[in-house]
Amino acid sequence: MDKKELINKMKYCTVLYVEDELDVRKHIVEYLNRFFKKIYVSDNCEEALDLYKIYKPNIILLDINLPGMNGIDFASLIRKEDSKTRIIMTTAYTNKEFMVQAVELDLTRYLVKPVTGTDLFSATQKAILELDKNSSLPTLIDLGEGFIYQHTEKNILNKKDNSIILLRKKEIQLLEFFINKKNETITYEVIETQIWPDDIMTEDAIRSQIRNIRNKTYSKILKNISGVGYKLCVRTD
């Protein structure tokens, strides 16, 4: 993969950055914003853990020495259930014990401060290569009118303002079902039995989920076929 292709892939990836030093944080965030789609920022691991659970970033960049929970403990929590998200660790000094722990956490790279732009670019490029190898880069699905469904992250990107639209579990299930059946009319009965076989879903409940998706994207994304059901109609004009 050449440099141009790597940089292009960065545009579709998100980064969670955890650093308690304000000046360092501002400098690095400014640098990362040149390449990545979205940067989520925190100065502590407790808040960062909440951000991770909500946004599921592709790459985590964090300092080891943080107030409260340190970077090693944070990365350990992530690795208990997530082997795909790439983690880059930074620290102000080398520490043999930390380095041994870092190896066990399958880190992409261990950077010693002050981190240069060259070091950071090299580390993030390596993270992109690892993500690509594991096939864990976002799968992007054009929903029309500037809305992109990010299958890996389970959310929608609004390209008009580069904002992220969060979806609830049932909205995700419904939207993915329609994406797999694009331009097919899906009856109420099929929606009830195939999407939520273990739940009691009335037509009113289904309409409510349809309305939620429309409100978060645009009104004609799911077309009502009177008396039958709905179909996904992607508008590209």
Rank of each mutant, 00 (worst) to 15 (best):
L16S: 05
V18A: 00
D20N: 08
E21K: 00
E21F: 03
I28N: 06
I28C: 05
E30F: 07
E30H: 11
L32W: 02
N33M: 07
F36P: 03
F36A: 02
F36W: 02
K38T: 10
K38S: 12
I39L: 07
I39M: 00
I39D: 03
D43H: 12
D43S: 12
E46I: 13
E47Y: 10
E47L: 13
D50Q: 14
D50M: 09
D50H: 11
I54S: 04
I54M: 07
K56E: 06
P57W: 01
P57H: 08
N58V: 11
I59S: 00
L61G: 03
L62N: 06
N65Y: 01
P67H: 08
M69Q: 13
M69Y: 01
M69G: 08
M69R: 05
G71N: 04
G71Y: 01
I72W: 01
I72A: 02
D73I: 04
D73R: 01
D73M: 07
F74C: 01
A75G: 08
A75R: 02
R79N: 04
K80G: 05
E81G: 12
D82T: 04
S83I: 07
R86H: 06
I88P: 01
I88A: 00
M89Q: 05
M89T: 11
M89V: 15
T90F: 00
T91P: 10
Y93S: 12
Y93D: 11
T94A: 14
M99G: 03
V100Q: 12
V100L: 15
V100C: 08
A102C: 15
V103E: 13
E104P: 01
L105C: 09
L105F: 10
L105A: 08
Y110G: 08
L111F: 09
V112H: 03
K113W: 13
K113A: 10
T118N: 07
L120A: 02
S122H: 07
S122R: 10
S122W: 06
S122C: 09
S122Y: 08
A123T: 04
T124Y: 04
Q125L: 08
Q125D: 08
A127G: 05
A127M: 03
A127W: 00
A127K: 01
A127D: 05
I128F: 09
L129K: 12
E130A: 11
D132V: 05
K133A: 12
N134S: 12
S136Q: 12
L137F: 07
T139K: 14
L140M: 14
